[in-house]
Simulated assay, not measured.
Amino acid sequence: MLEALTDVRKEKAIAVKEGGGVGIILIDPVAKYVLFQFVIPSVLIGKAEAEELQMYIKTEKNPIARIYLIVTNVGTKPAPTMAIFSSKGPNIITPDIIKPDITAPGVNILAAWSPVAIENTAGNSINYNIASGTSMSCPHVSAVTALLKSVHPNWSPAAIKSAIMTTATTTDNTRHFIRNDDSTNANPFDYGSGHINPAAAVDPGLIYDFDTNNVIDLLCSYGASVAQLKNLTGTPVHCKNPPTPSYNFNYPSIGVANMTGSLSVYRTVTYIGEGPTIYYSNLEAIAGVKASVYPDILRFSKSGEKMTYRIDFVPYKSSNGSFEFGSLTWRNDGHSVRSPIAVNVVSV
């Protein structure tokens, strides 16, 4: 979506330049704050600014337009907010896994750039450029991943993913819940587990780990054949009968895409810490579903210890094809390990 958006802007600016124009004022209510390199001096405005500008042109005998250099504003509030072009859930391929996993800075990111002059830099040779999209949020998460691996060299990719997801924040710098660009409340299908918090991810307290066998179980739950699995493993692999339900995949988030009556979801956590500790559960209510966690207290005696818990879901109202959200958070004296929950109650 973002690429199409910038391509249209690019073509408009090129057309104005070819027509002899020296600047362009582009009305773009959807993404007026998303910047990129134009071929001529340009400014982006929204609907309200456009109406004001048109009134000025109509009433002023000799209207004048002046485009100033862009200014960086620090400490903007509220922040973060979810960009209009950000990919949204639910997950189509594996609906029991909430997507996205996480959100990270991805709008108007100033970053190093190849000095080769290309169309996307308006034909200019530059060392830094401003860009937006997944291509900018991904490097932020990749860098955090590299930092976590340097601190915890023995962690698996799944453990790193878990640490990033369970320590993310769902509030902005005004201490309100993160919102979308249109000022509506965001949810796990907008930001996943929340906005990335690198400092907290270094010491997550608990992690949700999984290995190749767990991934095979997940693929089996979606009907993978022996031939398909062999393409991945190189050796014949047979699925369990019956297969492990996909909602029991040991992921840091919890999703049930087709809830037909009561069911239980299982997760296993690994303690990452020093000495004995106790974690207490806090289950956020889910509309139309009665949920309880057992055990509701986890007692660990040493680092590396694993414990399994279950969440019992008893639906009492259909969600009419939409998902309802909640969360489960495990807390001790210094850690908060949060998993978003999304359930779609098909029938009770």
Results as ranks from 00 to 15, higher is better:
K161G: 10
A224S: 10
I57H: 00
I286N: 10
A122T: 14
K58P: 00
V144R: 00
D28V: 12
G19Q: 05
V151D: 01
V226W: 07
V34W: 00
N214M: 13
N231C: 07
V346N: 13
C239W: 07
N231V: 03
M55D: 09
I24V: 10
I130N: 06
D333I: 15
H176K: 14
I297P: 00
T233V: 12
N332L: 13
G321Q: 13
D181R: 09
H238R: 14
V337R: 07
Y271F: 14
P29W: 03
V226P: 06
Y128V: 15
E284Y: 09
R310L: 07
S322K: 11
E3P: 00
L263V: 00
S292D: 12
A111N: 02
I164G: 01
A159C: 08
V43M: 11
Y208P: 02
K240E: 04
M1Y: 15
S142F: 05
V256R: 06
L5H: 15
I70T: 09
F38T: 12
L5P: 00
Y266A: 11
S221N: 05
N129Q: 13
S156A: 07
Y294A: 03
I126N: 02
S347K: 10
M55H: 04
D333L: 13
Y266G: 03
K58Q: 02
L44C: 11
P105I: 05
F249P: 03
V144E: 00
K17G: 07
P139L: 06
A111S: 13
S162A: 03
T233Y: 00
K12T: 12
G194P: 14
Y266N: 13
A122D: 02
A227I: 05
G234E: 01
A143H: 02
R9A: 10
N62Q: 08
A65M: 14
T169S: 13
S114P: 11
A227C: 00
E60I: 04
T184Y: 02
A31V: 10
I84T: 11
I25E: 05
P95L: 03
G223D: 02
W330N: 08
V269A: 12
H152Q: 09
P245G: 09
P252S: 05
A287Y: 06
A200R: 13
W330C: 08
D296K: 04
P80A: 00
E51P: 01
Q37I: 06
K240F: 03
L5Q: 11
I311A: 09
I67Q: 01
T260H: 03
S135P: 00
V43A: 04
T268M: 05
I126W: 07
S347F: 06
L206I: 11
Y266P: 04
S301W: 13
E51T: 05
S262Q: 12
